[in-house]
Simulated scan of single mutants.
Amino acid sequence: MAEEPTDPRAILRGGLPGRYLAPEDLVAMFGLPSVDTFYQWRRKRIGPPGFRVGRYLRFDPAAVRAWVTEQTAPEDAA
């Protein structure tokens, strides 16, 4: 059985993981200075869409990939 990649950046490059991503995964993936920066993004409604599982915030890797694609698309493509 192949092991799942532990580096969040490898997750998006290598395919969808078998788990949802935590804010700490996105901080590592995007090279943000801290989780606080990420939560500031959330308050400003910047960043990929997430959802709550109880008190925990999680992200679908497919939604994260779609958000990254949207951010990197040329503006004149519309």
Score class of each variant (00 low, 15 high):
Pro17Arg: 04
Val27His: 09
Ala10Lys: 08
Phe30Cys: 00
Ala62Asn: 06
Leu21Asp: 06
Glu70Met: 02
Trp41Met: 02
Arg65Asp: 03
Arg43Asp: 06
Tyr20Met: 03
Leu57Gln: 11
Ala63Gln: 09
Val68Asp: 12
Asp7Glu: 07
Glu4Ser: 15
Glu4Ala: 15
Arg42His: 15
Asp76His: 13
Ala28Trp: 01
Val64Ile: 01
Tyr39Lys: 06
Pro48Ile: 00
Val64Cys: 01
Gly31Ser: 06
Arg13Ile: 07
Arg52Tyr: 02
Phe30Lys: 00
Ile11Pro: 00
Trp67Ala: 05
Met29Leu: 13
Arg13Cys: 12
Met1Gln: 08
Lys44Trp: 08
Glu3Ala: 15
Ala66Thr: 09
Ile11Tyr: 07
Phe30Gly: 02
Arg55Pro: 03
Ala78Ser: 01
Glu4Arg: 15
Glu3Gly: 15
Asp7His: 02
Gly50Pro: 00
Glu75Trp: 14
Val53Glu: 01
Glu4Met: 15
Met29Tyr: 13
Glu70Thr: 02
Leu32Asn: 09
Ala62Ile: 05
Pro49Asp: 07
Phe38Ile: 08
Arg19Trp: 12
Phe59Asp: 01
Pro5Gly: 13
Val35Leu: 13
Glu24Asp: 12
Ala66Val: 07
Met29Ala: 12
Asp36Trp: 10
Trp41Glu: 00
Arg55Phe: 00
Glu70Ile: 01
Phe38Asn: 12
Ala28Met: 04
Asp25Pro: 09
Pro33Ile: 04
Met1Gly: 13
Val64Gly: 00
Gln40Ser: 14
Leu12Gln: 08
Asp76Tyr: 07
Ile11Glu: 06
Ala10Asn: 07
Pro17Ile: 04
Asp25Tyr: 05
Trp67His: 10
Ala62Phe: 07
Gly15Leu: 10
Pro5His: 15
Leu21Val: 14
Gly50Trp: 01
Glu24Lys: 05
Leu57Tyr: 04
Arg9Asn: 10
Ala10Thr: 06
Gln40Arg: 14
Pro61Arg: 08
Ala62Tyr: 04
Leu57Pro: 02
Gly18Pro: 06
Pro74Ala: 13
Arg58Glu: 08
Glu4Tyr: 15
Ala66Leu: 07
